Computed example of a mutant assay.
Amino acid sequence: MSKKYPVIAVTGSSGAGTSTVKSSFEHIFRREHLNAAVVEGDSFHRYDREAMKLAVADSEKSGGRPISHFGPEANEFEKLETLFKEYGETGSGERRLYLHNEEEAAPYNQKPGTFTPWQLITPGTDLLFYEGLHGGVKSETADVAKYVDLLVGVVPIVNLEWIQKIYRDTEARGYSAEAVTHTILRRMHDYVHYITPQFSRTHVNFQRVPTVDTSNPFIARDIPSLDESMVVIRFQNHRGVDFPYLLNMIKDSFVSRPNTIVVPGGKMGMAIELILTPLILDIVAKSKQ
């Protein structure tokens, strides 16, 4: 882990809600006047959109284990590890953007689903902030988690994760429910071996648990709201966590285990900022000493 140039990563599966946590981090950075170098996990995919479709089709035709965006075959884990390591040592490193749609692609005069060229991070940032699938991943060839100073997991229970995935891909992206279900099954091996293990390495985990029936995610017609959920927050090291303060600040919260606090879903953003702000400020303060 770095001392002088901190690396902070939010990791979570596709559809898990990492974007909500990213917004909370942005509030913290803005309020505390911190200049963050932002890195998106999608920019470390190995293939652009069209090439990925071909790679998936080829892997399925071969009869072997199909590749997915969750696993090492479709990602540049080594480059992500190198970025975290180099940033921790120098405050710079190479990053690029993945252009998701027409709006993002237009300024670069490129097609959606492609990457911008690799560029060095401009020196002078206070920290690196990563949000994506693999902030704490380990594989046979890379150990990304080794170079992260604060690793935050966002992991709803799996049925809720699938509901969010199915709803997003059918409503916003036009896929059929059958196609999305096929994708979930295709990437299950990589989910078990490369996504789930990260949440045993996180310093803080936020797990959203619905309080409504999600027993069959494949027929669900809507996503349970935050107000229909509780959030289970687990600390890797609970020593130093001011649980009485959190319980006083977050109405209807309670401690379920010595290292775990449960808060109403509608208070998730507030909990994130209350919990993570002092951790971030402590890391940054130490880096400036």
Rank of each mutant, 00 (worst) to 15 (best):
V152E: 03
E50I: 05
S62K: 15
I272V: 09
L80A: 06
I166W: 10
H45I: 10
L151A: 13
I195P: 06
G93T: 08
P107R: 08
H134I: 07
E81F: 02
E171Q: 15
S2M: 01
V154K: 08
S13D: 11
N216A: 06
F25V: 09
S19A: 15
P156I: 05
A145F: 01
T116K: 12
D282I: 02
V241C: 01
R46T: 06
L120S: 10
A16F: 12
N216S: 09
V10D: 04
Q236V: 00
M249E: 15
F199H: 15
F254T: 14
V192I: 15
P210V: 00
A145M: 01
S68A: 14
S62D: 15
R46A: 10
P278R: 02
R257K: 11
T20W: 13
L226G: 15
R95F: 11
I275R: 12
E60N: 05
L247F: 08
L83A: 12
V209T: 12
D242Q: 12
K138W: 03
E273Q: 08
V231L: 04
L97V: 00
G15M: 13
I261G: 04
I8T: 08
D149Y: 07
M268D: 08
H238Q: 15
V56M: 13
K146A: 15
V212Q: 05
V148P: 03
I272P: 01
I184M: 06
M268C: 07
D126A: 07
E94C: 07
V231N: 04
G88P: 03
T125C: 14
F29E: 09
H27C: 10
R31Y: 06
M268Q: 04
D126V: 02
D42Y: 04
G240S: 13
P217C: 09
G93L: 05
F25C: 02
E103M: 09
L276W: 11
Y130R: 03
E26P: 00
Y98T: 09
G88F: 00
A51S: 14
L120M: 00
P210A: 01
G124P: 00
T170K: 01
D143T: 13
V263A: 08
F243E: 07
S176L: 15
K138D: 04
E103T: 07
V148H: 02
E50P: 03
E273I: 10
E273M: 05
K288S: 06
I233E: 11
T277W: 06
F29A: 06
D222A: 04
P210G: 02
L97M: 09
L150H: 03
Y87E: 07
L127V: 08
F115L: 08
T181C: 07
T181Q: 10
E73D: 11
I163T: 11
G269M: 10
K286Y: 14
L247W: 01
K3S: 14
V152A: 00
L120Y: 02
K61C: 09
G15L: 10
V56N: 12
V180I: 04
N237V: 13
S14K: 09
H100A: 13
W162Y: 15
T183W: 06
P123T: 04
L99C: 02
V152S: 02
V209G: 11
I157L: 02
I163L: 03
D213H: 02
D48E: 07
D58H: 11
M52D: 14
F70W: 12
V137S: 12
F29D: 12
E273R: 11
V255G: 11
V152G: 05
N248S: 12
Y147F: 05
I250G: 07
S176W: 04
